[in-house]
Amino acid sequence: MLEGVAPRLAVATRLPRPALTAEGLRQLTAVLLGAALVETLLLRLVTRIGVHLPKEGVVTRAFESASFLGSIAFNFASLLAIALAVVVLASLARRMERGPAQLALIGLSVAMLSGLALSLTTDSPTADAVFGVAAALLVGAVGLVFAREANRTFGDRLALALIVAAYLSYQYYVLSHLFYRIFDYGAVPPLSISVLRLGEVLAVAAAAVAFWAWGLPRRRRVGTAGLAAVATVLLVLIFAGLSPYSTMAILALWTTGLSLILPFPVYLLALALYLLTLMACWRSGDGFWTAAGLLLVLLAGYMPEATYQHLLLLLGVAFLSRAVPWTAPHPAATA
């Protein structure tokens, strides 16, 4: 399908698209997932937990090496995420009929990418605002609108809607503050914290719904290895949560951007369901893109602090929605 469409879009012409098949994109996505996972573990998680480790001799050197490798993974993942975002947005635009909607999507994509470019090179809050608003609208469009048309079930849509709603809640908190700052309005944006807390509840709920929608039907695919992996993660967290190093467990959860307003076990349960779903999808032949989407959303976290995490989330939602042609449930493109 990709080969059949002429590169009409400005953004698309600069891509190495013609040489990439759906299989190629799948491989690139897998590379991105690996890099993002390494980055999260070595940089975000270790540096936070590292605050609580003794910093002497070997530990310091190990810590610094981990931090350096994590930084490489970060830049690598960020580059791949930008490239994949361009490909995803281009293919979305290409599959739409000409008209105001296509123009709007192209406009938003260009706005987001130029906001990103400006945000990376300048300190301008306007650049952040352009990027933030465009990212929010794109995630909303992909998750709420396109998903409607990709033959998705009610469960699919509900899980996706919760993920998108959580992201939009967080973006409301950040962007309302940003706009108040840009327009120099001397007040606290209305309901900003309430919406932020609501978003966290939605994020936790999304894990449960995702399990219901994607995990349960594939539960047999989790397998012993998958169960063991999830159990290990959980046991480590429970043990850490009960031990004198409980702060580490909490910091680990913070890495996903959750501020822990609900009781601790709720988060553990949500994480367990989410990871089980991820495992089930990963090990099912038809679930690669769902698994990839879930992992990207997890790595983006509830409170994405950097532009790169926003891109992970956009990609994650796009893969979960299956609106991108080469991720569709019955991919004609791979034929």
């Binding site: 830049n75 690598f76 960020s78 580059l79 990027f131 950040v174 940003l178 950097a306 790169y308 995490q309």
Partner: peptide, 22 residues
């Protein structure tokens, strides 16, 4: 991408900008 990433890291740069509240 990997080469660019190593280059950026060695020159102490990160290809992302903070989007937190200011």
């Amino acid at each position: 991408a990997l080469m660019v990433a190593v280059g950026l890291t060695v020159s102490d740069m990160r290809l992302a900008s903070s989007q937190t509240v200011t």
